[in-house]
Design a binder for these strands. Structure first.
Length: 424
RNA sequence: GGAAAGGUGGCAGAGUGGUUGAAUGCGGCGGUCUCGAAAACCGUUGUCCGGAAUUUCCGGACCGGGGGUUCGAAUCCCCCCCUUUCCGCCA
């Protein structure tokens, strides 16, 4: 949620920020509602002060045997008026809340202004030694490889659950599990995260806290009987660990990493990049989440991207880093880097990670604050990033590690996790 | 699924209609004592909103959430949520 004070104090900056993010300009609407709200508050608080003052005298009057009937009558009228104004205040505040909850975050000043994904900026790329975009043999795609080597069975996955619910079999399942364990261990051993294993069903408050609701509600699964949502990412439960809490300054930066399956309806996206693993309803992801002080959150963002990159370097998978432009940023993000890995069969880059700084946007929704040394309480900055998602990574990995004979070499760093070095 | 109890400040825990934002204890912070520390003692210690002033006042709200009764609600009534314990079922 945007800070209403920011809108009040820098209306033009917010207006421009929303425009850059292709969002509706709600500034004037908010300003006028805000003014209305403060007008009502001034009136109602005067009346409440009067009521409190009079109420305080009543015990003494009763003791003295004075007649309280006229005062009661008067206070009854005041009470009615207060109820009326309270109602009005509530309505105005609901309107403000409704708008702000649906208004996206605005981008950090370092983010390039742009309309769509085409305006994203490639920051850097990394290619393993000896890598070439050209191959002198016919590369198979992950679906063909998965079928040929009995690693993936998309048909049966569809039978069991529906399209987009992948079934891993044999060494495919082992490889997936190895990848998850390897990534978790790497972050724990090299990057000082604390491991979390979160619930994968969360309540509505948690979904609101991280900003999936109300805007993205259509893209979420929902278990109506129990009012629970299967998580679209571990970001949701992990960020909500500290919902409604005031953290100590010395605890920050808090760094969590956790694995979870992720569930997404991907409503309306059928047919678009949807074959095999490219777009699925269930996938596995290792997620990094940070709670940071505002003054170093952008350094933390850079470090988080590096943390994800380290894994790809160790796995020797070609990747590039994109800085998303204002128009392509997600609803809650102020700045975001995407990490894309190379798919030789698709002949394109696939998004395998997204690392974002939300500044106070999520913290304000989820009410996550910290107490500074001078005792003042402020919102923390929250960040998260995939470290990384396995599905797209698996595509790149299988395809890049195939041999001309159609075998797959297991990346050396994974071999002690898989217990085998070649899949044939 | 059945039954019972309970949700109060960072934590523990009083408080059943009226100067209660809330006793007390612990913790935290500051001080006295000390070479220093501990102990002891003294003081202090919630969040949000609005206003006035430039960091200090004034006012309001908040005792799980929502609604009701009343001149007045942490306290009474209703609905919802959650937690704990016991029983049942079960990975």
């Amino acid at each position: 949620m945007l800070d209403i004070k920011l809108i009040r104090e820098n209306p033009d900056a917010v207006r421009q920020g929303l425009k850059n993010k292709n969002a509706e300009d709600i500034v004037d609407q908010i300003l006028s509602l805000d003014e209305e709200r403060r007008g009502i508050i001034a009136k109602v608080e005067d009346l409440k002060a009067k009521k409190n003052q009079v109420s305080a005298q009543i015990p003494a009057m009763k003791k003295a045997g004075q007649d309280t009937a006229p005062i009661f009558a008067e206070m009854k009228r005041v009470g009615d008026e207060i109820a009326l104004l309270d109602g009005q205040q509530g309505e105005v505040e609901e309107k403000i809340e409704f708008i702000l909850r649906r208004t996206p975050n605005i981008a950090h000043s370092s983010v390039p202004v742009g309309k769509s994904a085409e305006d994203n900026v490639e920051v850097r790329r990394w290619l393993p030694e000896g890598f070439s975009f050209e191959n002198d043999y016919k590369v198979l795609d992950h679906i063909e490889l998965g079928k040929k080597l009995s690693l993936l069975d998309f048909e049966r996955g569809t039978k069991i659950a529906g399209s987009g619910f992948p079934l891993y079999t044999g060494k495919g399942a082992t490889l997936e599990r190895a990848l998850i364990n390897y990534m978790l261990d790497y972050h724990l051993q090299h990057h000082e995260y604390k491991e979390i294993m979160p619930p994968v069903l969360v309540n509505r408050d948690s979904m609101k806290g991280t900003g999936q609701i109300p805007k993205m509600e259509e893209d979420m699964y929902f278990i109506e009987k129990d009012g629970l949502y299967p998580i679209p990412t571990a970001e949701v439960p992990i960020t909500n660990i500290h919902r409604d809490e005031i953290l100590a300054e010395k605890e920050l930066t808090i760094k969590y990493v956790g694995y979870s399956p992720c569930f997404r309806r991907e409503a309306g996206s059928y047919g678009k990049d949807s074959k095999g693993f490219l777009r699925v309803h269930q996938f596995n992801k290792v997620e990094m989440v940070k709670f940071s002080k505002p003054d170093n959150s952008y350094d933390e963002l850079e470090m988080m991207v590096n943390d994800a990159e380290d894994i790809l370097k160790a796995l020797k998978i070609p990747y590039r880093i994109l800085m998303l432009c204002t128009g392509d940023l997600s609803f809650s993000a102020a700045k975001c880097y995407d990490i894309e890995t190379w798919s030789p069969a698709e002949n394109k880059w696939l998004e395998a990670s997204s690392c974002s700084n939300f500044e106070t946007f999520q913290a304000r929704r989820a009410n996550i604050r910290y107490r500074k040394e001078d005792k003042k309480v402020e919102f923390v900055h929250t960040l998260n990033g995939s470290g990384l998602a396995t599905s797209r990574l698996m595509v790149s990995m299988l395809e890049n590690y195939q041999t001309p004979e159609g075998k797959i070499i297991v990346p050396p760093v994974l071999q002690k996790y898989t217990g085998f070095s070649v899949i044939e």
